[in-house]
Write a protein that binds this DNA or RNA. Structure first.
Lengths: 338, 338
DNA sequence: TTGAAAGCGATACCAT
DNA sequence: ATGGTATCGCTTTCAA
């Protein structure tokens, strides 16, 4: 490959191969019939020149960029501390790779989403997946206005009816957790909830409360965390200080469950003998706690696969088509903490 | 704003405003003089149509995309567990924002960097910052071949002379750590090293060894970790099992230092009375250990600022200019573990 | 099968 | 200050 000052153009390739731009283009993209001879000549020229199509030019005429954005409307600390995102991105990357799409990650600082919006309106990507873990700043409305194909993972607080959404049944799963605890004979069941301004936190708490009330049990034992291990420890201490009689805990994340278990251990309380506990997520930590944690498996893989499917479908339809909503049901994973 | 099926073009804006495309473009970009009247008419039309310039078209003629890539040639688990990346991306995002550039994050799965390379060759970005935390797959050579402006944070194993690099003096810093330990009277100093295939891991160990030998001390007490807390615990146990007399430890990351401290505590060894310890990074954990950790501050902020400066400079020069190397010196942060 | 030419949607030069 | 027009690099009719 020759070292060149600037990237080579299709024109140069065509000239070197002794054919027209049209033929060169066809040979490269392989969509149309080209004589074996021309084919070879073009490919040689491409190699010789180290040619790669100019993305801007190609996008301009094709009205396609071949890349989709994943938008994380979160502070970077959150993004880089919650295993949820790692798992999700991993799945997204895989799904997009299969469809030959490039993943472009857009970190939207909570305040300055304007520049990201500008980027999206510039049509630098064909579509977007928004992991709306957080109460977001009208992102759903903005994207909907924009007319850019998009799918939300997790229901946004605002404008959920205007965009496609893939979610899991957080409330139903929490109810399931409560049922397991009740079946094992627990009666004084507390919740370590997630942040109130996050959909998942909100819905899981609601499910816990509803199921508890349906069972005629007290639903006043609540402490809030932020999904981190440390906050789980603090919340658990708070709970125990207020009421030493607690015999069951539902934690809205495995990390918080882990933190809670540390606190229980520090106080000499045994799991599950003295206090049973159910977590949420099953992203790896759950298997490694001592004892292994009973939890709800957040179906991230399924959600992502479906999200990418919906998105590419929408893109292929040229952005037309009504928003669609899909909900997956988390599965209870029985281990040894109940 | 009118809801439209497709994004509007400059042509439509111009027509609605009753001016030519040229004038409309000038009014929008504000580079050239436009009469107040035309200005207003165009801006109104823009608002009315919800117009945003088409990125592809603009890039094509400007030969600029207004976005730069940050490439992380790492598995996503690593990226999302090591606080180094969070801190770095935070700094990059800030620096780019100041220059009105869009950050595009490219996660290069260790195996499949080809599609990312294709993206880069397509000139979808003006330049790239590579956080080469890891032994990378000839990325420096590839990018250099490509002619795309780029800056590496951390010296790549291969082709470092062909690209610009910003790094910190890992070896020198490690030597500093050893000196502090020696000065406090320690003589049997062990190292908890990072992975051998990571530059930072390699260089820090080398610095430790060199300084120890210069002081006429034994440099055989080494255990390897992978920068995580858990690996620090394991490595520390390994070290202690092999030689109970250790009185000083240099850990190549704060996380590993933390893990080591947990192990020391579990064995009833007191820090710093029985064993002194120095970490590396100072990314937050160091302040919160018990007791607070003496460590080397990895100057991530400085490195990133410089990297972005170098990159934009290179971009502005049209990619010409020789590769440049800049090295920062980590600062010793004295706390209570020595 | 191939080539000439018409766009895609912007910017910028050159007159006016 | 403004408008006409060439241009960026590519894909895709339309004829031949």
């Amino acid at each position: 490959m020759v070292v060149k000052a600037h990237a080579s153009t299709l024109d140069e390739v065509a000239r070197l191969a002794g054919v027209s731009k049209a033929t060169a283009s066809r040979a490269i993209n392989g969509r149309s019939k080209v004589s074996a001879k021309a084919q070879a000549a073009v490919l040689d020229a491409v190699r010789e020149l180290g040619y790669t199509p100019n993305g801007a030019a190609r996008s301009l005429v094709m009205q396609r960029t071949g890349s989709v954005a994943v938008i994380l409307p979160e502070s970077d600390e959150r993004v880089f501390s919650d295993p949820f995102f790692a798992r999700m991105l991993h799945a997204v990357a895989r799904a997009l790779r299969e469809r030959d799409l490039q993943l472009v990650l857009l970190l939207a600082q909570p305040g300055d989403e304007s520049r990201m919006l500008l980027y999206l309106r510039g049509r630098y990507v064909d579509g977007a997946i928004v992991a709306s873990h957080h109460r977001d700043d009208r992102l759903a409305e903005h994207l909907s206005d924009l007319g850019l194909p998009c799918v939300f993972i997790g229901t946004p607080w605002l404008g959920a009816d205007r965009v496609s959404v893939v979610d899991s049944d957080n409330a139903g799963a929490a109810a399931q957790a409560v049922r397991v605890l009740v079946e094992s004979g627990r009666r004084r069941i507390a919740a370590i909830a997630g942040p109130r301004d996050m959909r998942a936190g909100h819905d899981r708490l609601a499910g816990w409360r509803q199921e508890l009330e349906a069972a005629g049990l007290d639903s006043s034992r609540v402490a809030y965390g932020d999904f981190t291990e440390h906050s789980g420890t603090t919340a658990c201490a708070e709970l125990l200080d207020a009421d030493g009689d607690i015999d069951g805990i539902f934690a809205a994340s495995d990390l918080m469950a882990l933190g809670a278990m540390r606190e229980l251990e520090a106080r000499g309380l045994r799991v599950p003998d003295d206090v049973a506990i159910v977590g949420y997520d099953d992203l790896g930590v759950a298997e490694r706690t001592q004892p292994p944690l009973t939890t709800l498996r957040n179906p991230i893989g399924q959600m992502v696969t479906e999200a990418v499917r919906l998105l590419t479908e929408t893109i292929d339809q040229g952005g037309r088509g009504a928003p669609r909503h899909v909900v997956f049901v988390p599965e209870l994973v029985r281990r040894d903490t109940v």
